Structure formats: structure tokens, C-alpha cells
Simulated assay, not measured.
Amino acid sequence: MRKLVCVAALFLASGGLAHADVVADRQAIMKGIGQSVRTIAPMVKGEKPFEAGAASDALSKLNEYAQKIDVEALFPKGSDTGDTTASPRIWEDMPGFKAKTDKFKADVAAAVAANPHDLDALKTQFQAISSNCSGCHQDFRIKKN
């Protein structure tokens, strides 16, 4: 009986660790996305001068992170607990969440392909990207206090 309890405890602990890993993985991706956005947003807002190379690099990095978002792998059932701001709505409306994620990935890839060489072009591309971010955060993220 004691062995059974130990095996069950290890099984449950490994499942909890697996979910902790996906939470950490998706948080790392979101932090990378945020870092790229923090490079581009000040240019778009006129707070920093436009630099085509920096914008292109940030868009490329943003695309690398965006393409790593695998909804099935990063948001398995049960990974909505612990240190996460993922809303339960993700699991209640997984098709809607996946659609928003797919649109974000496509818009970021399109921005990279457009390779904006001036501020106006960057603003157009970034507007599409940032509307995805805010829409998804509004619908599928718990607001921090």
C-alpha cells in the first residue's frame, strides 16, 4: 500500500511539474514578445526615432516568439493554476483562443514579410499586431492588480 501511495504521489507531482513547465514556457514566450514590442512601440508613438534595422530585428524576433505559440502544447487542460494570468476562458473557448493566436501569428509573419522601411509602413504593420495583443489580453488574460 505504501508503494502505491508513493507511486501515486510521484505521478501527481510529475503532472504538476509538467504544467509548471508549460506555464513557464508560455510566460517566456510572452516576455520575449513583450520585449520586441517595447522596441517597436516607442518608434510608432514618436518617443524614439525610427530605426529601420532595429524595427526589422524586433519584428523578426517577435515573429520567432509568435511562431513558438503552440496552443495545444502550451495550454493543456489543468495548466490554468499556479503563477499564471491565463484566463479560464482559454479552456472554455479553445477554438476562439486558437483563432486569435493564429491571426496574431499570421499578422506578425506578414509584418516581417512586408519589411517596413519607413515609419508609416511600420505603424500600419504594428497596428495590426498590437490589436491582436490587446484583443487577446482582454478576452483571455486575467488582469493583474
Rank of each mutant, 00 (worst) to 15 (best):
D93F: 08
H117K: 15
K68L: 10
I29K: 02
D70W: 12
F97T: 08
I40H: 11
E72Q: 14
I40D: 13
T85G: 04
I69P: 01
G82P: 00
F97C: 07
K143M: 13
T39C: 09
Y65V: 01
I129C: 03
N63I: 02
H117E: 15
S56R: 15
S56M: 03
G16W: 00
I129P: 00
I40S: 06
Q127C: 02
A66L: 03
H19M: 05
L10Q: 07
V44D: 13
K98T: 12
Q67G: 10
A121W: 10
I33E: 12
H19D: 05
I29G: 01
I90L: 09
A66K: 07
L10E: 12
A41W: 04
V112Y: 10
D120G: 08
V37W: 01
K31S: 05
A113N: 08
V112H: 08
E92W: 07
G46H: 10
R141E: 03
D25W: 04
I90D: 04
E47M: 11
G16S: 01
S14A: 12
A20D: 00
S36V: 09
F50D: 11
L12D: 09
G53Q: 14
F140L: 02
F50N: 10
F104I: 00
A52R: 15
K31D: 05
A106S: 03
V71T: 13
P88V: 00
M43Y: 02
V112T: 03
D21H: 05
S87R: 07
S56Q: 15
E72A: 15
G78C: 06
P42R: 12
A58S: 03
V108S: 05
A58P: 06
A99N: 13
E92N: 05
F126L: 08
M30G: 00
K45I: 03
D118S: 08
E47C: 10
V44G: 11
R89I: 04
D83S: 04
D107M: 01
D80T: 00
T84V: 03
S14F: 01
I69W: 07
G53W: 01
A28Q: 09
Y65F: 11
R89D: 15
K77F: 09
F140R: 07
L17T: 02
K100L: 10
F50M: 10
L119T: 05
Q138K: 15
K61T: 14
M94V: 15
D102A: 05
I33S: 05
K68I: 00
I142E: 12
D118Y: 03
L119K: 15
H117P: 07
S36F: 14
D107P: 00
A13H: 04
A99R: 13
A113R: 06
A86D: 00
Q127G: 13
K68S: 11
K61E: 11
A54K: 15
A54G: 04
R38M: 14
D83L: 03
K48P: 05
S60A: 09
A121Y: 12
T85W: 08
I40F: 14
G46P: 02
V22E: 00
G135H: 10
A73C: 04
V23L: 01
T85A: 13
C133M: 06
S134K: 15
S56D: 06
K45A: 08
S60N: 13
C133A: 06
H117A: 15
D25E: 06
D57Y: 12
I29R: 05
N63M: 10
I40R: 03
T101V: 06
